[in-house]
Amino acid sequence: MNQDKIDRRKAILGLGLTGMGMAFGELLRVSLNESDKWTKYPSSKKQQYAMLINLDLCIGCNSCTIACKQENHTPPGVQYNIVLKKREGTYPQCKERYLPRPCMHCEKPPCVKVCPVGATKKRKDGIVDIDYNKCIGCRYCLTACPYGARAYDFGENYYTPPNSFEKARSYEYGNEWVREKGKSPINNVRKCHFCLHRIKKGLEPACVQSCMAQARTFADINQVGNAITTNIANENFWRLKDELGTFPSVLYVGKF
């Protein structure tokens, strides 16, 4: 025992190595944690919200974009839902195809991983959540999102001074928010939250309800007999940028 005394250098080295080992272990644990969740259905979670968008039904009217704007009172430049367009061919043999893009609510979200303050988190029901009061506005998540689903609130308004609609409170992530200078959600990164406040009341997200072609279906896929069950069972869907391994909760049917 007495022969191998621990001197200062050994102690520091040991502590350093232990710390590095713990850090490495933590990283390994987090990155391996249930990585193949989406390959098995139903998953072990109680709830898993998902959205199915049928591109063959979508007519590109952007009513989902407008409905989202109205529901969440988003300022100029901040858009939770957009509709991407793709044109093929030349007149008269031409086609236009549409791809509505909300937040994908990935099973392994790259944005959650990078947030330095842990302000954005994956909820147990599958929704990727932002804590506006924690967010410092560093825009790392905005850069890291492979779908461009995040937007920074620069504090701009459509009207100066803002009209009653812009000043009205919104209910993102189940809380009440009024856009006032210097206070959240201004100077935060914002994104689609599957209209969490509406889900809590038993309603569908605004974009789903407003879609006149009924191209969107929203469901808790862990409930028996939900609207997406057959698509999932038959593997009749595709996901955007699936090769990145983010496992989005937004599923597409049809061609883009």
Binding site: A23, E26, L27, V30, S31, V112, K113, V114, C115, P116, V117, G118, A119, K134, C135, I136, G137, C138, R139, Y140, Y152, S184, N187, N188, V189
Partner: peptide, 19 residues
């Protein structure tokens, strides 16, 4: 964005974040 919150990075840690 929120300059006043810069110190919270030392309270709200995220082990998976390089930053």
């Amino acid at each position: 964005g929120h300059m006043g919150r810069f110190w919270t990075v030392f309270i709200n840690r995220n082990t998976t974040s390089i930053l």
